[in-house]
Structure formats: C-alpha cells, structure tokens
Amino acid sequence: MLKDITLGQYFPGDTPVHRLDPRTKLVCVILYFIALFTANGPCSVGLVFLTLAFAVGISRIRPGALVKGMKPLLFIVIFTAILNLFFTEGEVLFRWWIFRVTDQGVYRTVLMVLRIFLLVSSTFLLTYTTSPLQLTDGMERLLAPLKKVRFPVHELSMMMSIALRFIPTLIEETDKIMSAQKARGADFDTGGLAKRAKALLPILVPLFVSAFRRADELATAMECRCYHGGEGRTRMKTLKMGVGDYLTLLLYCLVVAGAIVLVRLGL
C-alpha cells in the first residue's frame, strides 16, 4: 500500500542537533559544502569527514540510516567510480584486458565516493533532524531580504508548508481511488507501457479534480481565518538564535578555514 511509504525523513528527537535553529543548520550545511569542495587532500578530507562524524554522533542518528540514504544514488556512484577508476592517467598498478588501474585512479575514486557520501549524508542529517515545517520556516527567514526585490518568499514557503500538510491526505486519497477503480475491474499491472500509462487516467483524473476542489475549499477556509498574505503577519513560534547556534556557526567557519589552510599546505 502507498500509505506504508514513510514520507518526510524527519526522525523526531531532542538532541543538541535537533534543538539548533533551522537557520543555523541550513547555513552550516552550506558552509559544509564549501569545506567539502575545497578539500582534496587526505588531511582536508579527513577533517570534513570527522566534522560530519562528530555531528552525526551528537544527533544520535544511526549511521546505517545515512548509508541507506545512499541507495537511490548507488547507480550514479558506481558509474562515476568506474569512470574514475579505469580512465585516470597515472602509474599503472595492474592491467586486465583493455582495463588498467592507476594509482591516481584509485585515489580519485576513493575521494570521489567519499565526497558524494559526505555530501548526501550532510543533507540527510539536516532533514533527519529538522522537521519539514522548521525547514520551510528557516528558509523563509533566511531568504527574507529577497522580499525587497519582490521575490515572493512568504508565498513560496506558505505553498511548501501546505503541500507538506496535504501529502499524506492525497496519498490516502490515491489509495482509495485506486481501490475503487480496481473494484470496477481496472488493471494497473499488466500490458505494455502505453497501456499502463492509459490505465493511470482513471486515477489521475479524479485525483486532480479532488485536489482542485480541496485547494478551492482550503482557500476559502484560509480567507475565513483572515489570511491576507504575508503583510503584517506574526508567528507564534519565533525562531531564536542561542549561544549554541553561534558556537556551531563559528565551528563550521573554522572547519572551512581549516580545509582551505590544509589544501594550501598541500595536505
């Protein structure tokens, strides 16, 4: 059943990582990316690796959950790994048929796989420890200055949070419509691609009709509750940056600086 898919990767918890302001976490992820792409020697890569390991440790997220997150990317990782491994110039370690493996190839492959892993894991750590609502909230506030150039920051984040709210509702609805059409003999499992695509119509049409109806009713309900855009709107939960937030930001700045220094030193 569709319902069984766990959506939103948030693992509720009460660790220092969970408690950080979402803005801090968003900025830290960006800083981490900078450090990650700067790093290209064993020491600098080691530094960024340890930084993430430290954060994961505090967050109490099982490392297994992060590894699992790599699954959908496995194909790309393997593909680029093969390219790197066999087609990099350098001192040949061994040959087999038309393939040859060089020391540089091995080095770059390891580096690349590690980088992808750290890149993906750091974003997963963010979504695992921050609720979607906090994330949109954090983004809205970080992007607030863009309102000055008429970028619809509030509207976008409102849309995102409503979308998040309705995902479970629409999944449940899809389930129901599928069952109802199956009860009338609809067949979603056999036939070629074209036939299967056509078989989706009896699901998609009612789903769209219903989504529009919901949107319409929701808009009315929002108006009834005095919604009139972002202007003059306050929030019940105000985000507050604490000492921990500033310290974390400082730490990540240091990591970036450290990575740059290590790279300059050729380590």
Binding site: K176, I177, S179, A180, Q181, A183, G185, D187, V209, S210
Partner: peptide
C-alpha cells in the same frame, strides 16, 4: 479478476472516482 465483477463494491463517497468525459462512458467503465 472474475470475483471483482461478481462482487460489486461501491466505496464511500464514490462520486470522487468519476473520471470519464461523459456519464455514459463512466458507467461503461
């Protein structure tokens, strides 16, 4: 597959499953 046609099931709020362009074609599904 055969049992689907021998036991007809009408779900709750079945009006939300209509999808065809005409009433006739929907009933004919």
């Amino acid at each position: 597959r055969d049992i689907r046609f021998r036991v007809g099931l009408v779900f709750q709020y079945p009006e939300y499953q209509l999808f065809e362009e005409t009433v006739y074609r929907d009933i004919a599904f």
